[in-house]
Lab assay of single mutants.
Amino acid sequence: MGFKLLSKLLVYLTASIMAIASPLAFSVDSSGEYPTVSEIPVGEVRLYQIADGVWSHIATQSFDGAVYPSNGLIVRDGDELLLIDTAWGAKNTAALLAEIEKQIGLPVTRAVSTHFHDDRVGGVDVLRAAGVATYASPSTRRLAEVEGNEIPTHSLEGLSSSGDAVRFGPVELFYPGAAHSTDNLIVYVPSASVLYGGCAIYELSRTSAGNVADADLAEWPTSIERIQQHYPEAQFVIPGHGLPGGLDLLKHTTNVVKAHTNRSVVE
């Protein structure tokens, strides 16, 4: 069995187990497998329904001669939608809004960016022009300005110390501490036991640490421990890039980060 097929099978099995364990909360999309990078042309966006009122959005972007996937989250909030992270750029984010209108038909009224990198804030200006209120932590807003990236308009308070959590509509926002970046936030959907790890969490097929220019490698494993301790009931975990899975993604990420750190020390 090929690795790609095995990865998709694991996603399907995880979703099936969740649907059985929580039949009222989960209505997993039966329309197909989780979209992969090879299936999404740059400039297009796919939506994948995880649970009743919960979707991931998947886009792709060219970077350094390669094409990478990027995940975000959409959560229903009454007759409105909360968006977590842009679709990595203005063109993708405009396509995301169009796809949401086509498939869901509810307005996106608020959006949260989970850290300051372009795959999370690139497209904020498109959201703002569409009347979406954009939010991020003060740290993310400051770092985005320093980096020359787009800056969300509103500040999220109460997320300055490791372990801080605040309720934001249908989700809980959690600051686990520094990891992929010093400002990275985690998003949890309690009604569906869905954990969105953003770039602080890796997919299972990833074996290298990737972009760690703004990471705190020493603190990252401790931050992941905080996530595990705060959300032990999480059933569906979405990484910032690639295929979702279960809580095993947290341990896998820790292993990859520690291996990278150990290699760096040896070198």
Rank of each mutant, 00 (worst) to 15 (best):
V166E: 10
P239A: 12
S38C: 11
A218M: 10
G89V: 02
A87S: 15
A95H: 15
P107I: 15
K8F: 15
G148Q: 07
L97D: 03
D119Q: 00
S205Q: 08
H117F: 00
V121Y: 02
Y135N: 06
S7N: 04
L24C: 09
S181P: 01
P138C: 11
Y68G: 09
E219H: 15
V75L: 10
A21M: 08
I74F: 05
Q61C: 06
R142N: 15
D29E: 14
A95G: 11
A200I: 08
R167V: 05
S208Y: 12
T93W: 00
L185A: 02
P176G: 14
M18N: 04
R142V: 09
P170D: 06
V28Q: 10
R76I: 06
D118M: 07
A19F: 15
V37T: 08
A66R: 06
Q103T: 14
G105C: 07
M18G: 04
Y34D: 10
H117V: 00
D52L: 06
L6H: 11
P190S: 04
T14W: 04
E203T: 04
T93C: 03
D85S: 00
L143C: 05
E219Q: 12
G198S: 05
D119R: 00
E33I: 08
E150H: 15
V266R: 10
H252G: 10
P69Q: 05
F3E: 07
W88I: 00
F3I: 05
A213I: 07
V42Y: 05
P107W: 11
V166N: 15
Q61V: 07
R226F: 06
L83D: 02
G158Y: 12
Y231M: 05
E267Q: 08
S223Q: 03
H115I: 00
A66Y: 05
K251G: 14
L185D: 01
G169K: 04
M18Y: 09
H180Y: 03
Y34G: 09
E44H: 11
A59I: 07
L47R: 01
S137A: 10
G148Y: 08
G53P: 08
A25M: 08
P232N: 11
G53K: 13
L159E: 01
R128G: 08
R120V: 02
L250M: 06
Q103E: 11
M1S: 03
Y135K: 00
Y68W: 04
V265K: 07
A213Y: 12
G105K: 15
L217K: 04
V37G: 09
Q228G: 12
H154N: 06
L185M: 15
A21R: 07
G131P: 03
V11K: 05
N184P: 02
A259S: 06
T114L: 00
I40Y: 13
A25Y: 08
S38F: 10
P41F: 13
I104H: 02
F168S: 03
R142E: 07
Y12M: 08
R141T: 10
D216Y: 15
E145S: 11
L81D: 00
D29M: 11
S113G: 12
N211I: 07
P170R: 14
S223N: 15
A218Q: 07
A66W: 06
E147A: 12
F3K: 07
A87F: 00
A66D: 06
S27Q: 05
Y175K: 04
R128T: 08
L249P: 00
S16A: 04
F116M: 15
A215F: 08
F26M: 09
S113P: 03
L173W: 01
S181H: 00
L204W: 11
E99Q: 09
I201R: 02
L106C: 13
R206D: 07
I104D: 00
Y68T: 09
V54R: 01
A59F: 02
A90Q: 11
V189N: 03
P23K: 10
D79M: 15
L81Y: 03
G197C: 14
L156P: 03
Y202S: 10
H252F: 09
E172I: 15
I151L: 11
S205C: 04
A111E: 14
A95K: 12
T182R: 05
D248R: 09
Q235L: 10
Y68E: 07
P138N: 05
L243V: 12
A87C: 01
S38M: 09
L106V: 14
Y175M: 15
A234F: 15
I224D: 00
A133I: 08
S162W: 14
N262G: 11
R263D: 10
A133W: 10
E225H: 04
Q235V: 08
E150D: 14
G122R: 09
G32Q: 14
A129R: 07
I84E: 01
R110F: 03
V37D: 12
Y12E: 07
R76Y: 08
Q61G: 06
A129S: 12
R263S: 07
T222N: 13
A66C: 05
M18P: 04
P152E: 03
D118W: 10
A95D: 10
G240P: 01
A200Y: 03
D77L: 09
D119Y: 00
K8S: 12
R206G: 11
V37P: 07
V171P: 02
Y34W: 10
E145A: 11
D79Q: 15
S7P: 15
A200M: 05
E267Y: 15
R167E: 05
V266S: 12
D52A: 08
